Amino acid sequence: VLRADGLGADALLAAVIPLFELDVYATPVIMMAPVPGDSLDPAVEAKYRKALNYDGEIEQMERYAFYERAKKAYAVVITGETAKYGNIILKKGVTPLS
C-alpha cells in the first residue's frame, strides 16, 4: 500500500501514465459500478479519461468483485480522492523497448 494523501486520483493518474503502459490485450481500466439504485457522476470518468489520455473501454465492476480484484493488485495507492465511485484499477501492459 502506497499513500498519496492530498492528491486527487486524476492528478496521480496523469503523473503515472507516462511511465505505465496500459494493457492492449484486455480492458486496462476498471472502475467500480454503482450499487443498485445509485448512479455514477460522469465527470469522474471524464477526468480519469483525460488524465490517462484514454478513450477506450472502461469495465464497470460490481462493488465487492472490485474489492476482491483490488486484493490481487501489485500495488494499492491511497489518495485524497473524494469522488463517489472514484476507485480505479489499471492493468499494466508490456513496456516497449524503444
Results as ranks from 00 to 15, higher is better:
residue 28 P to I: 00
residue 78 I to K: 05
residue 70 A to T: 14
residue 84 K to R: 09
residue 96 P to F: 08
residue 47 K to S: 14
residue 73 A to V: 05
residue 29 V to P: 09
residue 23 D to Q: 05
residue 28 P to D: 06
residue 80 G to A: 11
residue 31 M to A: 12
residue 14 A to Y: 01
residue 85 Y to W: 07
residue 57 E to S: 15
residue 22 L to V: 00
residue 89 I to T: 06
residue 88 I to W: 11
residue 24 V to K: 15
residue 86 G to T: 11
residue 1 V to S: 01
residue 93 G to S: 07
residue 6 G to N: 12
residue 21 E to S: 06
residue 44 V to R: 00
residue 60 Q to S: 14
residue 70 A to N: 11
residue 77 V to W: 08
residue 90 L to S: 13
residue 89 I to G: 01
residue 22 L to G: 03
residue 28 P to F: 04
residue 4 A to P: 04
residue 51 A to K: 02
residue 91 K to H: 10
residue 64 Y to W: 13
residue 60 Q to M: 15
residue 1 V to T: 03
residue 74 Y to H: 00
residue 6 G to W: 12
residue 42 P to C: 04
residue 93 G to Y: 02
residue 53 N to T: 06
residue 30 I to D: 03
residue 96 P to L: 12
residue 33 A to S: 15
residue 3 R to Q: 08
residue 96 P to R: 02
residue 35 V to R: 15
residue 66 F to I: 04
residue 27 T to Y: 06
residue 98 S to W: 03
residue 33 A to L: 02
residue 37 G to H: 05
residue 73 A to Y: 07
residue 59 E to R: 08
residue 35 V to K: 15
residue 91 K to N: 07
residue 38 D to N: 10
residue 20 F to V: 04
residue 80 G to E: 07
residue 46 A to H: 10
residue 9 A to I: 01
residue 31 M to S: 08
residue 86 G to S: 12
residue 29 V to G: 03
residue 61 M to N: 09
residue 60 Q to F: 12
residue 28 P to N: 11
residue 58 I to M: 14
residue 40 L to C: 05
residue 66 F to Q: 14
residue 44 V to D: 01
residue 16 V to R: 03
residue 75 A to I: 13
